[in-house]
Protein backbone atom coordinates (compact mmCIF):
# COMPACT_ATOMS: atom_id res chain seq x y z
CA UNK A 1 0.00 0.00 0.00
CA UNK A 2 1.32 3.39 -0.96
CA UNK A 3 1.36 5.81 1.91
CA UNK A 4 1.19 9.57 1.73
CA UNK A 5 0.64 12.23 4.33
CA UNK A 6 -2.02 14.39 2.64
CA UNK A 7 -4.13 14.23 -0.47
CA UNK A 8 -3.72 17.70 -1.96
CA UNK A 9 -4.06 16.76 -5.60
CA UNK A 10 -3.70 14.07 -8.22
CA UNK A 11 -0.36 15.68 -8.93
CA UNK A 12 2.02 13.84 -6.67
CA UNK A 13 0.23 10.48 -7.01
CA UNK A 14 1.51 7.72 -9.25
CA UNK A 15 -0.36 4.97 -11.13
CA UNK A 16 0.35 2.44 -8.36
CA UNK A 17 -1.14 4.71 -5.71
CA UNK A 18 -4.18 5.42 -7.86
CA UNK A 19 -4.76 1.74 -8.56
CA UNK A 20 -4.48 0.74 -4.93
CA UNK A 21 -6.88 3.51 -3.86
CA UNK A 22 -9.36 2.37 -6.49
CA UNK A 23 -8.99 -1.28 -5.45
CA UNK A 24 -9.64 -0.36 -1.84
CA UNK A 25 -12.60 1.79 -2.90
CA UNK A 26 -13.98 -1.18 -4.81
CA UNK A 27 -14.10 -3.19 -1.61
CA UNK A 28 -16.02 -0.37 0.06
CA UNK A 29 -18.56 -0.37 -2.76
CA UNK A 30 -19.36 -3.97 -1.88
CA UNK A 31 -19.44 -3.18 1.83
CA UNK A 32 -21.77 -0.23 1.33
CA UNK A 33 -24.10 -2.25 -0.86
CA UNK A 34 -24.24 -5.02 1.74
CA UNK A 35 -25.50 -2.49 4.26
CA UNK A 36 -22.65 -3.22 6.69
CA UNK A 37 -20.19 -0.75 8.16
CA UNK A 38 -16.63 -0.94 9.47
CA UNK A 39 -16.93 1.33 12.45
CA UNK A 40 -13.77 0.08 14.11
CA UNK A 41 -11.42 1.38 11.39
CA UNK A 42 -11.52 5.07 12.31
CA UNK A 43 -12.96 4.73 15.81
CA UNK A 44 -11.75 7.54 18.02
CA UNK A 45 -10.50 9.55 15.07
CA UNK A 46 -11.82 13.03 14.41
CA UNK A 47 -12.65 14.17 10.91
CA UNK A 48 -13.41 17.83 10.35
CA UNK A 49 -15.13 18.94 7.19
CA UNK A 50 -13.85 22.50 6.78
CA UNK A 51 -15.80 24.13 3.98
CA UNK A 52 -15.07 27.72 2.99
CA UNK A 53 -17.34 27.29 0.01
CA UNK A 54 -20.84 25.85 0.02
CA UNK A 55 -21.14 22.27 -1.13
CA UNK A 56 -23.83 19.98 0.09
CA UNK A 57 -22.86 17.03 -2.09
CA UNK A 58 -19.16 16.75 -1.40
CA UNK A 59 -19.52 17.53 2.27
CA UNK A 60 -22.27 14.95 2.73
CA UNK A 61 -20.22 12.39 0.84
CA UNK A 62 -17.21 12.89 3.10
CA UNK A 63 -19.44 12.90 6.16
CA UNK A 64 -21.00 9.60 5.20
CA UNK A 65 -17.60 8.11 4.36
CA UNK A 66 -16.20 9.13 7.73
CA UNK A 67 -19.20 7.84 9.67
CA UNK A 68 -19.23 4.50 7.88
CA UNK A 69 -15.65 4.00 9.06
CA UNK A 70 -16.50 5.03 12.61
CA UNK A 71 -14.87 8.48 12.74
CA UNK A 72 -16.29 11.35 14.75
CA UNK A 73 -17.32 13.80 12.04
CA UNK A 74 -17.70 17.52 12.57
CA UNK A 75 -18.85 19.95 9.89
CA UNK A 76 -17.60 23.51 9.86
CA UNK A 77 -18.88 25.99 7.33
CA UNK A 78 -16.40 28.79 7.65
CA UNK A 79 -17.86 31.08 5.02
CA UNK A 80 -20.58 31.95 7.48
CA UNK A 81 -18.57 32.17 10.68
CA UNK A 82 -14.94 33.05 11.35
CA UNK A 83 -13.95 34.63 8.05
CA UNK A 84 -16.55 37.31 8.46
CA UNK A 85 -15.04 38.00 11.87
CA UNK A 86 -11.64 38.62 10.29
CA UNK A 87 -10.09 35.28 11.26
CA UNK A 88 -7.47 34.21 8.74
CA UNK A 89 -7.04 30.79 7.24
CA UNK A 90 -4.04 30.20 9.48
CA UNK A 91 -5.91 31.27 12.61
CA UNK A 92 -8.43 28.62 11.70
CA UNK A 93 -5.61 26.12 11.23
CA UNK A 94 -4.20 26.89 14.67
CA UNK A 95 -7.65 26.44 16.22
CA UNK A 96 -8.16 23.09 14.54
CA UNK A 97 -4.71 21.96 15.59
CA UNK A 98 -5.58 22.67 19.19
CA UNK A 99 -8.63 20.41 18.80
CA UNK A 100 -6.40 17.46 17.81
CA UNK A 101 -8.18 16.77 14.58
CA UNK A 102 -6.87 13.71 12.68
CA UNK A 103 -8.35 14.20 9.23
CA UNK A 104 -9.09 17.60 7.78
CA UNK A 105 -11.22 17.79 4.65
CA UNK A 106 -10.91 21.25 3.12
CA UNK A 107 -12.79 23.03 0.42
CA UNK A 108 -11.69 26.59 -0.35
CA UNK A 109 -12.39 29.09 -3.10
CA UNK A 110 -8.65 29.81 -3.54
CA UNK A 111 -6.17 27.59 -5.33
CA UNK A 112 -3.45 26.34 -2.99
CA UNK A 113 -5.35 27.00 0.26
CA UNK A 114 -5.31 23.30 1.36
CA UNK A 115 -1.56 23.19 0.64
CA UNK A 116 -1.11 26.24 2.88
CA UNK A 117 -3.14 24.58 5.64
CA UNK A 118 -1.20 21.35 5.27
CA UNK A 119 1.98 23.22 6.14
CA UNK A 120 0.47 24.40 9.40
CA UNK A 121 -1.66 21.58 10.82
CA UNK A 122 -0.77 18.17 12.19
CA UNK A 123 -3.84 16.54 10.65
CA UNK A 124 -3.83 14.77 7.30
CA UNK A 125 -5.33 17.25 4.84
CA UNK A 126 -7.66 16.15 2.07
CA UNK A 127 -8.35 18.64 -0.66
CA UNK A 128 -12.08 18.63 -1.35
CA UNK A 129 -11.69 21.24 -4.08
CA UNK A 130 -9.50 24.36 -4.11
CA UNK A 131 -10.28 27.27 -6.40
CA UNK A 132 -9.58 26.30 -9.98
CA UNK A 133 -6.74 23.98 -9.02
CA UNK A 134 -7.67 20.40 -8.07
CA UNK A 135 -10.44 18.19 -6.79
CA UNK A 136 -8.66 14.86 -6.41
CA UNK A 137 -11.44 12.76 -4.86
CA UNK A 138 -13.73 13.72 -7.75
CA UNK A 139 -11.14 12.48 -10.25
CA UNK A 140 -10.73 9.25 -8.27
CA UNK A 141 -14.46 8.61 -8.15
CA UNK A 142 -14.72 9.34 -11.86
CA UNK A 143 -11.89 6.89 -12.49
CA UNK A 144 -13.60 4.21 -10.41
CA UNK A 145 -16.86 4.76 -12.29
CA UNK A 146 -15.05 4.45 -15.61
CA UNK A 147 -13.12 1.36 -14.57
CA UNK A 148 -16.25 -0.44 -13.36
CA UNK A 149 -18.18 0.34 -16.52
CA UNK A 150 -15.43 -0.14 -19.10
CA UNK A 151 -13.48 -2.83 -17.29
CA UNK A 152 -10.27 -0.88 -17.65
CA UNK A 153 -8.75 2.53 -17.02
CA UNK A 154 -6.36 2.82 -19.93
CA UNK A 155 -6.46 3.21 -23.68
CA UNK A 156 -9.81 5.02 -23.53
CA UNK A 157 -10.70 8.22 -25.33
CA UNK A 158 -12.27 10.70 -22.92
CA UNK A 159 -13.79 14.02 -23.96
CA UNK A 160 -14.14 16.64 -21.21
CA UNK A 161 -16.53 19.36 -22.35
CA UNK A 162 -17.41 22.91 -21.38
CA UNK A 163 -15.79 25.28 -18.89
CA UNK A 164 -12.32 23.76 -18.62
CA UNK A 165 -10.70 27.06 -17.59
CA UNK A 166 -12.49 27.35 -14.24
CA UNK A 167 -12.77 23.65 -13.50
CA UNK A 168 -10.71 21.93 -10.83
CA UNK A 169 -12.54 18.73 -11.76
CA UNK A 170 -11.12 19.00 -15.29
CA UNK A 171 -7.57 19.55 -14.04
CA UNK A 172 -7.62 16.58 -11.65
CA UNK A 173 -9.27 14.37 -14.26
CA UNK A 174 -6.76 15.32 -16.97
CA UNK A 175 -3.87 14.56 -14.62
CA UNK A 176 -5.28 11.23 -13.50
CA UNK A 177 -6.57 9.99 -16.84
CA UNK A 178 -3.44 10.87 -18.84
CA UNK A 179 -1.26 9.35 -16.11
CA UNK A 180 -3.19 6.06 -16.46
CA UNK A 181 -2.66 6.02 -20.22
CA UNK A 182 -5.87 7.40 -21.70
CA UNK A 183 -6.38 9.90 -24.49
CA UNK A 184 -7.91 13.06 -23.09
CA UNK A 185 -9.56 15.72 -25.19
CA UNK A 186 -10.90 19.00 -23.92
CA UNK A 187 -13.75 20.59 -25.83
CA UNK A 188 -15.10 24.09 -25.33
CA UNK A 189 -15.17 27.66 -26.57
CA UNK A 190 -11.64 29.16 -26.68
CA UNK A 191 -12.49 31.57 -23.84
CA UNK A 192 -13.03 28.60 -21.53
CA UNK A 193 -9.87 26.66 -22.47
CA UNK A 194 -6.97 27.38 -20.09
CA UNK A 195 -3.83 28.70 -21.85
CA UNK A 196 -1.04 26.17 -22.20
CA UNK A 197 -3.23 23.13 -21.47
CA UNK A 198 -2.26 21.46 -24.75
CA UNK A 199 1.32 21.11 -23.53
CA UNK A 200 0.16 18.35 -21.18
CA UNK A 201 -0.61 15.71 -23.80
CA UNK A 202 -4.21 16.85 -24.06
CA UNK A 203 -5.81 17.68 -27.38
CA UNK A 204 -7.88 20.84 -27.57
CA UNK A 205 -11.07 21.09 -29.63
CA UNK A 206 -13.52 23.91 -30.10
CA UNK A 207 -16.02 21.81 -32.01
CA UNK A 208 -18.11 19.12 -30.32
CA UNK A 209 -18.35 16.91 -33.41
CA UNK A 210 -14.58 16.80 -33.73
CA UNK A 211 -13.98 16.53 -29.98
CA UNK A 212 -16.50 13.77 -29.37
CA UNK A 213 -15.73 11.67 -32.47
CA UNK A 214 -15.09 8.10 -31.35
CA UNK A 215 -15.01 8.98 -27.62
CA UNK A 216 -15.59 6.24 -25.01
CA UNK A 217 -16.51 8.71 -22.29
CA UNK A 218 -18.09 12.15 -22.50
CA UNK A 219 -17.82 14.31 -19.40
CA UNK A 220 -19.83 17.52 -19.18
CA UNK A 221 -18.74 20.18 -16.69
CA UNK A 222 -20.84 22.67 -14.83
CA UNK A 223 -20.87 26.17 -16.29
CA UNK A 224 -21.12 28.71 -13.47
CA UNK A 225 -23.93 31.21 -13.86
CA UNK A 226 -21.62 34.24 -13.69
CA UNK A 227 -19.70 33.01 -16.75
CA UNK A 228 -22.67 32.74 -19.08
CA UNK A 229 -23.89 36.30 -19.11
CA UNK A 230 -21.52 37.81 -21.61
CA UNK A 231 -18.30 37.52 -19.62
CA UNK A 232 -16.94 34.33 -21.09
CA UNK A 233 -19.75 33.21 -23.37
CA UNK A 234 -22.56 35.41 -24.65
CA UNK A 235 -25.50 33.47 -23.23
CA UNK A 236 -26.62 30.14 -21.83
CA UNK A 237 -28.62 29.40 -24.96
CA UNK A 238 -25.68 30.00 -27.28
CA UNK A 239 -23.51 27.82 -25.05
CA UNK A 240 -26.11 25.06 -25.09
CA UNK A 241 -26.48 25.28 -28.86
CA UNK A 242 -22.79 24.65 -29.49
CA UNK A 243 -21.47 22.88 -26.39
CA UNK A 244 -24.47 21.53 -24.48
CA UNK A 245 -24.41 17.71 -24.43
CA UNK A 246 -27.61 16.60 -26.11
CA UNK A 247 -28.68 13.48 -27.99
CA UNK A 248 -27.41 14.81 -31.33
CA UNK A 249 -23.92 15.71 -30.15
CA UNK A 250 -23.62 12.52 -28.11
CA UNK A 251 -24.19 10.75 -31.43
CA UNK A 252 -20.66 11.74 -32.52
CA UNK A 253 -19.19 9.59 -29.73
CA UNK A 254 -19.03 5.77 -29.77
CA UNK A 255 -22.45 4.08 -29.59
CA UNK A 256 -21.67 2.78 -26.11
CA UNK A 257 -20.07 6.01 -24.87
CA UNK A 258 -20.87 6.85 -21.27
CA UNK A 259 -22.08 10.24 -20.08
CA UNK A 260 -20.66 11.71 -16.88
CA UNK A 261 -21.14 14.93 -14.93
CA UNK A 262 -19.60 15.91 -11.57
CA UNK A 263 -22.81 17.67 -10.50
CA UNK A 264 -24.69 19.70 -9.70
CA UNK A 265 -26.05 19.89 -13.23
CA UNK A 266 -27.38 22.92 -15.06
CA UNK A 267 -29.97 21.13 -17.15
CA UNK A 268 -30.38 22.79 -20.51
CA UNK A 269 -27.02 24.55 -20.24
CA UNK A 270 -24.15 22.06 -20.34
CA UNK A 271 -26.32 18.95 -20.50
CA UNK A 272 -29.76 18.06 -21.79
CA UNK A 273 -32.10 16.20 -19.43
CA UNK A 274 -32.77 13.59 -22.07
CA UNK A 275 -29.11 12.58 -21.98
CA UNK A 276 -28.55 13.08 -18.25
CA UNK A 277 -31.47 10.82 -17.35
CA UNK A 278 -30.84 8.13 -19.95
CA UNK A 279 -30.10 5.09 -17.78
CA UNK A 280 -28.46 3.30 -20.69
CA UNK A 281 -25.81 5.99 -21.17
CA UNK A 282 -25.61 8.17 -18.08
CA UNK A 283 -23.60 7.02 -15.05
CA UNK A 284 -24.12 10.27 -13.15
CA UNK A 285 -25.91 8.59 -10.24
CA UNK A 286 -23.27 5.90 -10.03
CA UNK A 287 -20.63 8.66 -9.73
CA UNK A 288 -22.31 9.80 -6.52
CA UNK A 289 -22.27 6.25 -5.11
CA UNK A 290 -18.61 5.82 -6.05
CA UNK A 291 -17.86 9.12 -4.33
CA UNK A 292 -18.62 7.69 -0.88
CA UNK A 293 -16.54 4.56 -1.53
CA UNK A 294 -13.55 6.50 -2.88
CA UNK A 295 -13.61 8.89 0.06
CA UNK A 296 -13.72 5.95 2.48
CA UNK A 297 -10.63 4.57 0.75
CA UNK A 298 -8.85 7.92 0.98
CA UNK A 299 -9.70 8.43 4.66
CA UNK A 300 -8.71 4.87 5.48
CA UNK A 301 -5.39 5.18 3.63
CA UNK A 302 -4.46 8.52 5.14
CA UNK A 303 -5.48 7.50 8.65
CA UNK A 304 -3.26 4.42 8.41
CA UNK A 305 -0.34 6.35 6.98
CA UNK A 306 -0.81 8.95 9.67
CA UNK A 307 -0.82 6.41 12.48
Amino acid sequence: MTSFRHLLGIEGLNPVAVTSLLDLAESYVLLNRSGKTQRDLLRGRTLINLFFEDSTRTRTSFELAGKRLGADVINMSVSTSSVTKGETLLDTAATLNAMNCDLLVVRHHRSGAPALLAQKVDAAVINAGDGTHEHPTQALLDALTIRRNKGRLSGLTIAICGDIAHSRVARSNILLLTMMGNFVRVVGPPTLIPPGIDAAGVSVHTDMEEGLAGADIVMALRLQKERMDGGMVPSAREFFAYYGLDRRKLGFAKPDALVMHPGPMNRGVEIDSEVADDAARSVIKEQVEMGVAVRMAVLDTLARGYN
Partner: peptide, 15 residues
Amino acid sequence: TEGARASWMGLPGIP
Protein backbone atom coordinates in the same frame (compact mmCIF):
# COMPACT_ATOMS: atom_id res chain seq x y z
CA THR B 1 1.96 35.07 -15.64
CA GLU B 2 -0.61 33.39 -17.86
CA GLY B 3 0.48 30.08 -19.31
CA ALA B 4 0.65 26.38 -18.66
CA ARG B 5 2.10 26.81 -15.19
CA ALA B 6 -0.56 29.23 -13.95
CA SER B 7 -3.25 27.11 -15.61
CA TRP B 8 -2.22 23.94 -13.79
CA MET B 9 -1.86 25.73 -10.48
CA GLY B 10 -5.32 27.18 -10.97
CA LEU B 11 -4.04 30.73 -10.63
CA PRO B 12 -5.68 33.60 -12.51
CA GLY B 13 -3.23 34.64 -15.20
CA ILE B 14 -1.84 37.93 -16.47
CA PRO B 15 -0.70 37.62 -20.08
